[in-house]
Structures are given as structure tokens and as C-alpha cells.
């Protein structure tokens, strides 16, 4: 109040020195921080293609995704009814979107909405990436009655029925796992025959 310039003290309206300084201060703080907002753009890198983009081509041979024989081709004779394995297309195992669960069931066990044209000799394959939050699904084998086996995601216990087009039987997954075509080749290995019939990965 030494300057006697405050509007309060002098009763003068309009711009005073104090108000002007305050305005300048607010404007400079807003400007300084506002300019920093541009950095947020830099800190969030642009999408590289985004989400799960599969690179599976029809004709790709299925190989074991994990375990001792990881990388070697899966043979039809090595799997019994009620078995399931995680598989990649050969040479494309660095892309998690390519991970599928290959399952062998009784041919008579399949029910709609399973796409029968995408199955062969009881073999059916689905994306192995849970549609909830992206964990890899596991196979809950039932040795006594293979038809009662099911696919489960251990992260939040979503359950899928492979005999019914991987329909969601329980848990938080929003949509079924996408089916993909497989067939048994003449040399006994398995190969993909189509692309995924539906979206894969978390539906967010």
C-alpha cells in the first residue's frame, strides 16, 4: 500500500499496477506450463500399427510355441482327443498375435457356432490371446471325458468352450476367441487355411 495505487485503497476502477502485475504473473505461469503441454505429445509415441495384428498366412505350418520341442512342427499323430497345445506359424513366433491354441476333439463333439469348414479331423484352432485383458489362455484337460475339457484364462478365469466356437462360458471375457482354419497335411503336420474369423486380443 506504499504506492497508494491499489484500487481498494484509492477507490479507483480499472487497471492498477498491482492488478497488472498479477495478470502478468498468471499469464506467464499459464504460458510457461501451457507450452510444456506440447511435451505430452512427444512422450506418448504414435501407434505402430496398434493392437494385435496377425501375420499368419494360409499355408503356414504350425509349430510348438513352448516346451522342449518349441519350434518344431506339430504332427497330427502326436495329439490325442482332449489334447491341446500352444502353436505359432513357423518362422513368425516373435508376434504374440500369432499365438493360437490347437485343440483335438471328437469330430462329433462340435456344435455351432463352430465353423466346421475350418476344422479338420477333430482339429480346431483359436486365438490364444484372451479377449479380456490379453493373457494367454490355458487348456483345462479332462482325461475321463475329453468333451468336458475347456479353455480357461488364468488371469481372471474367463472360460471358453472350444466345441462351441470358443463361446464364453463364464468370467469377464466379452467375446469368444477367434477361430482360425487348420488342416492336416499329407506329411502329418498341420497348416493354417485361413485368417482369424473375428477380432483377436483384448476388446478395449
Amino acid at each position: 500500500m506504499v504506492d497508494g495505487n491499489s484500487a481498494k485503497e484509492t477507490g479507483r476502477e480499472g487497471i492498477t499496477r498491482r492488478r497488472f502485475t498479477l495478470g502478468m504473473l498468471i499469464a506467464s505461469i499459464a504460458g510457461a506450463f501451457g507450452s510444456l503441454l506440447a511435451l505430452l505429445k512427444v512422450l506418448a509415441p504414435e501407434k505402430k500399427g496398434g493392437g494385435y495384428a496377425t501375420t499368419i498366412q494360409p499355408g503356414d505350418v504350425l509349430i510348438y510355441a513352448k516346451g522342449g520341442s518349441a519350434g518344431s512342427p506339430i504332427t497330427a499323430s502326436s495329439m490325442n482327443v482332449g489334447d491341446a497345445v500352444l502353436a505359432y506359424p513357423t518362422g513368425k513366433s516373435s508376434n504374440p498375435a500369432n499365438l493360437v491354441q490347437l485343440i483335438k476333439l471328437e469330430e462329433a463333439a462340435f456344435k455351432p457356432p463352430t465353423d466346421m469348414s475350418l476344422t479338420d479331423k477333430g482339429f480346431v484352432a483359436y486365438s490364444a490371446i484372451c479377449t479380456h485383458l490379453g493373457c494367454t489362455v490355458s487348456w483345462m484337460a479332462n482325461r475321463e471325458s475329453p468333451a468336458a475339457s475347456f479353455t480357461e484364462c488364468f488371469c481372471h478365469n474367463s472360460i471358453f468352450n472350444p466345441a462351441e466356437g470358443a463361446k464364453v462360458m463364464g468370467g469377464p471375457a466379452p467375446i469368444p476367441l477367434a477361430q482360425i482354419g487348420v488342416k492336416v497335411m499329407q506329411d502329418g503336420t498341420l497348416a493354417f487355411t485361413s485368417d482369424f474369423k473375428g477380432p483377436i486380443g483384448p476388446q478395449v
Binding site: 513352448k66 500352444l86 504374440p96 494367454t136 488364468f154
Partner: peptide, 8 residues
């Protein structure tokens, strides 16, 4: 990191 998610 590997394919397959154990119970965790």
C-alpha cells in the same frame, strides 16, 4: 517372458 500364462 514366454507364451503361456500361469496361475498368478
Amino acid at each position: 517372458p514366454s507364451p503361456g500364462t500361469p496361475v498368478m
